[in-house]
């Protein structure tokens, strides 16, 4: 699954750690999601969408 996390994060000038703190997960988790190595669960995807005030499909898209 592709995602726009890196771009969205850069727009807000957030580091991976900043986003991880907001999500309550490790920096490694953010890195794994961002690089497409790990697809988040639905609850975590909703949390990400909530933090960026966007819909899930605006952040994640199928390959």
């Amino acid at each position: 699954m592709k995602n726009r996390l890196k771009v969205l994060r850069a727009e807000r000038d957030w580091s991976q750690q900043d986003l991880a703190d907001r999500l309550g997960v490790s920096r490694q988790s953010v890195n794994a999601i961002e690089t497409g190595k790990y697809d988040p669960s639905l609850p975590l995807a909703f949390k990400i969408a909530e933090i960026f005030a966007m819909a899930i499909e605006e952040i994640f898209e199928r390959d």
Binding site: G24, V25, S26, Q28, S29, I33, Y38, P40, S41
Partner: peptide, 8 residues
């Protein structure tokens, strides 16, 4: 573990 990626 609350971090699902770390749990995996």
């Amino acid at each position: 573990e609350q971090d699902e990626f770390m749990r995996m």
